[in-house]
Amino acid sequence: MKVTESTSLYDNLEQMNLLDLLRNINKEDKKVPLAVEKVIPEISALVEEIVPRMEKGGRLIYIGAGTSGRLGVLDASECPPTYGVPFDMVLGLIAGGDTAIRRAVENAEDDPEQAWNDILGYGFNDQDTVVGIAASGTTPYVIGGVRTAKANGLLTGSITCNPDSPLSQEAAHAIEVVVGPEFVTGSTRMKAGTAQKLVLNMISTSVMIKMGRVKGNKMVDMQLSNKKLVQRGTRMIMEATGLDEHTANQLLLSEGSVRKATEYFYKKQN
């Protein structure tokens, strides 16, 4: 029996009052960061290898199906606006393609060859890293993609919520966040999904920081895609330079990023 499929510690859920339902879900959720904490050394080992490969032009590619695939797509899609990187530097590929982000595609996850074909659709780079995401660790789409990536000399990692899964055995860096039974038996969009999201946050954020995409604690390369972000960028420049709001705003808009604006300011000062 997989841990992710084991019976919930709670029963007769339909008879619980609403407050008890919410409190018990929250009680289970509290276990997730503690489980993630146990695998920080494994996350660190993977990131240590990802960074130099990406500095040489490699990409970070997530592959997954269902909830796991959607989480990979989410993490990848947030990197360009947050860190100003090219849209294809971090890729999220999901079994069944973009349609599967919103609607399940029947049998898409059962093809062990398709993930590699999806990767090849974006070209092949021997510095790429492929991270397979599967709560169960048994998804053929993910296992096949990681296996073929490894056979082609790519760095491979995995994020699962079962110990000693087939996916873990294929990956060079196996991250196993064992969070225990779900509140609703087998509903891995809950604790397992939360654990995967936390690990993905840690991987992409630490990679971007180590690649110089954060200065101090600020997203100095973020895309200025709405008023809120322009205002945030303006405040960053004000804090870094001492300029008034109007001048900082005009400098930001003319230079296009917080990094470029502050560099321009200090260059002019010298």
Rank of each mutant, 00 (worst) to 15 (best):
M1H: 10
L9Y: 14
L18S: 15
D20S: 14
N26F: 02
D29M: 03
K30L: 11
P33K: 14
L34E: 15
L34R: 14
E37Y: 06
P41D: 10
P41R: 03
E42L: 12
V47C: 13
M54Y: 11
E55D: 10
G58Q: 09
R59F: 00
L60C: 06
I61Y: 04
I63R: 06
T67F: 00
V73R: 08
D75V: 09
P81D: 02
Y83K: 05
P86I: 06
F87Q: 13
F87S: 12
V90D: 00
I94N: 00
G96E: 02
G96T: 00
A100L: 04
N107C: 03
A108M: 10
D111S: 14
E113H: 12
E113D: 12
Q114T: 12
W116Q: 08
N117W: 04
I119C: 03
I119P: 01
Y122V: 07
F124D: 11
T129Y: 10
V130P: 03
V131E: 04
G132W: 06
I133K: 02
T139G: 01
P140K: 01
G144R: 06
G145H: 01
V146A: 11
A149W: 15
A151Y: 05
A151K: 15
L155S: 03
G157F: 04
G157S: 08
S158V: 05
S158I: 06
D164T: 05
D164M: 04
L167I: 07
A171C: 12
A174V: 02
E176C: 09
E176R: 07
V177K: 08
V179F: 07
P181M: 09
P181L: 03
F183N: 02
V184L: 14
M190Y: 02
G193K: 00
L198I: 15
V199W: 01
L200Y: 03
L200Q: 11
S204R: 07
V207E: 05
V207M: 07
V214Y: 13
V214M: 11
G216M: 00
G216Q: 05
S225V: 14
S225R: 05
T234V: 11
R235V: 14
M236Y: 13
T241E: 11
G242T: 11
N249M: 14
Q250D: 10
S257A: 15
T262R: 01
T262C: 14
F265P: 07
